[in-house]
């Protein structure tokens, strides 16, 4: 039953997944292609930047370093928008969108529990996000290999950086799924999800610039997203892993509980 719902949803969404994966691979591949040229001019360009941007960009790791550059392009607005299209679009359409379209009644009138229904949606979310993240990181790694840019973390570094990106996006997806489980219109899920994501990104980026925002930084999953560490061969603190993994876990369990308990006027 779970497999039937999962496969049905995958059949509906695979063209979107493929388009996002190709788009991300092209965009990040292009960004990585330019890295050697950027590195050559990085010192000069950093001097030209306003001080608050320098503070933001240099707070954790320099963008001139390959691991810093990879970390930055992974949260480039275009990359983030494409990754979030899956993380926010799929969960908001899965429950609230299905209620809005009126199709949930047919699925749930079959012998499937709400827990299994949620599980199928989580499966689709994880699969699509894994494919899109793999397309991102794979394209960057391929271009770096082409330019013979070697990262100290090696293959393990790339894999751990990918895992961090996957967990970050699953966290956003989990929040959206939770909102979707409680809503009856997809807009009531994706709008607050986008707002929360933007706020979290803002807090994480500007927390290094504005002291007032600094106490809020631990609340943002972007603050725990540190792909430059494994790429540089350094260990990421377990607290960062716990926060990155905890958000999707807690929100998905929450979505299951909310959806299982709610009354559905479908």
């Amino acid at each position: 039953m779970t497999a039937a719902v999962f496969l049905r949803a995958l059949k509906d969404r695979w063209p979107t997944m493929l388009a996002l994966a190709v788009g991300l691979a092209l965009f990040l591949g292009m960004m990585a292609w330019w890295y050697p040229e950027y590195r050559a001019q990085a010192e000069i360009s950093m001097k030209l930047l306003p001080s608050f941007i320098k503070k933001m960009m240099g707070a954790r790791v320099s963008m001139a370093r390959p691991e810093g550059y990879v970390s930055w392009i992974l949260i480039h607005p275009l990359c983030l928008a494409m990754l979030a299209t899956w993380a926010i679009g799929v969960p908001s359409a899965a429950i609230a969108g299905a209620i809005e379209r009126g199709t949930l009644a047919f699925t749930l009138s079959g012998p499937i529990t709400r827990a299994r229904f949620i599980l199928a949606q989580v499966g689709l979310l994880v699969l699509g996000q894994a494919v899109t993240v793999a397309a991102c990181v794979g394209a960057v790694a391929a271009m770096f290999a082409w330019h013979a840019v070697v990262l100290p973390g090696g293959l393990a570094g790339w894999l751990l950086a990918s895992l961090q990106a996957l967990l970050l996006m699953l966290g956003i997806g989990g929040v959206t799924l939770l909102l979707s489980a409680a809503a009856s219109e997809s807009a009531n899920a994706f709008r607050p999800a986008i707002a929360l994501m933007m706020m979290a990104l803002f807090v994480s980026l500007f927390g290094d610039v504005f002291r007032a925002l600094e106490p809020l930084k631990p609340l943002s999953p972007f603050s725990w997203f540190r792909p430059y560490e494994p790429l540089a061969g350094k260990e990421t603190a377990w607290t960062a892993w716990a926060c990155l993994a905890g958000l999707p876990l807690v929100t998905m369990l929450g979505a299951w509980q909310v959806f299982a308990r709610r009354n559905l006027s479908i």
Binding site: R101, G102, T103, A105, F106
Partner: peptide, 9 residues
């Protein structure tokens, strides 16, 4: 089951 308002995929 046949719902009152039919919305098929």
């Amino acid at each position: 089951y046949l719902p009152g308002e039919v919305h098929l995929p």
